[in-house]
C-alpha cells in the first residue's frame, strides 16, 4: 500500500536547536496514528513542516504520491490536508456560526450551506452558542469549534495537535468516538496527544518523538511496555 503521507530524512533547525532530526515517517491511508513525546520534543514543529508553516532545512515530504516539500500551505490544504492547531486558531471576534461558515462555504452548494452548518453545530454541541463570539467560548468548546472547522473541509488527512487539552474526561471520550466515526468514513488521522487513555481509545499505531528524533514506534501496548519510553518521560534518558 502506498502511504498517504511520507517524510524522508526531514530536518529542521531553529538557530542551534535541532528540532527535527532525520525524521523518516510514513502514514498509511485509513490509519489513526498518535504522536507522543515530552514537551519540546518537536511534535508541533513536525506538524508545521507537514503543513508548510515552516520549510525544512533538508528532506522531503510526500503526500498522496506528490512532493509537497515546498508547496504553499493553502495548496496543501486544497490537496486534502486539514489541521487543528495546538493553540485554538479560531476567529475570536466572529460568531461561532461565522467561523463554521468560513470553513464550509466553498465545500458545499450555497443552497445547502445553512443546513450543513446546522448539522455541524448539532454535531459539535454548539447549536445553542452559535451566535456567541467564538472568543467567548470555554476552552473545551473552542477546541471543538476548531475541530469542526478542520473537518468541515472534508480532508483526507486530519492533523490534530492536542485536540483534547482543556476537555473533561467525558468530552475527551466523546471526541475519541467522533474521531473514530470520521475514521470509519475513510479519514486518516494523525494526532499529537498527552492523554494516554485517549491514545489507547483511538490509536492503531503510536510514534514517540524525543529531541526531534523518532524514539520508538509500535502499538500502544508495545509503547507502554517499553522501559526506555517510560524513562524519557521521567527525564532519565538523554537521547
Amino acid at each position: 500500500m502506498m502511504p498517504l503521507l511520507e517524510t524522508h530524512k526531514l530536518n529542521k533547525h531553529f538557530g542551534g536547536l535541532h528540532v527535527t532530526g532525520n525524521v523518516d515517517f510514513a502514514l498509511n491511508p485509513g490509519e489513526m496514528h498518535c504522536l507522543i513525546g515530552p514537551n519540546g520534543a518537536g511534535k508541533s514543529t513536525f506538524f508545521k513542516l507537514i503543513l508548510g508553516e515552516h520549510l525544512p532545512d533538508s528532506g522531503d515530504i510526500l503526500y498522496d504520491g506528490h512532493d509537497i516539500t515546498r508547496a504553499k500551505p493553502f495548496e496543501r490544504i486544497r490537496k486534502g490536508i486539514s489541521v487543528k492547531f495546538q493553540v485554538p486558531g479560531i476567529f475570536k471576534e466572529l460568531s461561532v456560526r461565522q467561523n463554521l461558515t468560513i470553513a464550509l462555504q466553498y465545500h458545499v452548494d450555497p443552497e445547502l450551506l445553512a443546513e450543513e452548518i446546522d448539522q455541524l453545530l448539532e454535531f459539535l454541541k454548539l447549536a445553542d452558542d452559535q451566535k456567541q463570539l467564538a472568543g467567548n467560548l470555554s476552552h473545551g468548546q473552542k477546541q471543538w469549534l476548531e475541530i469542526g472547522m478542520a473537518i468541515a473541509l472534508k480532508p483526507k488527512l486530519l492533523l490534530l495537535d492536542e485536540p483534547t487539552a482543556g476537555m473533561t474526561p467525558d468530552e475527551t471520550f466523546a471526541t475519541g468516538e467522533m474521531l473514530q466515526e470520521l475514521n470509519r468514513e475513510g479519514m486518516t488521522l494523525l494526532a499529537v496527544e498527552h492523554d494516554m487513555a485517549f491514545v489507547r481509545q483511538i490509536a492503531h499505531q503510536v510514534t514517540v518523538l524525543h529531541f526531534g528524533k523518532i524514539f520508538a514506534q509500535g502499538t500502544i501496548d508495545e509503547i507502554v511496555a517499553n522501559e526506555d519510553v517510560a524513562a524519557i518521560y521521567l527525564g532519565e534518558v538523554d537521547a
Binding site: 508553516e53 500551505p73 493553502f74 486539514s82 492547531f85 476567529f91 468560513i102 470553513a103
Partner: peptide, 12 residues
C-alpha cells in the same frame, strides 16, 4: 482575525 487559520482553511 487570524491569517494563519484562514490560510489553513485553504485560502490564498
Amino acid at each position: 482575525e487570524n491569517p494563519l487559520r484562514a490560510e489553513m482553511l485553504g485560502y490564498d
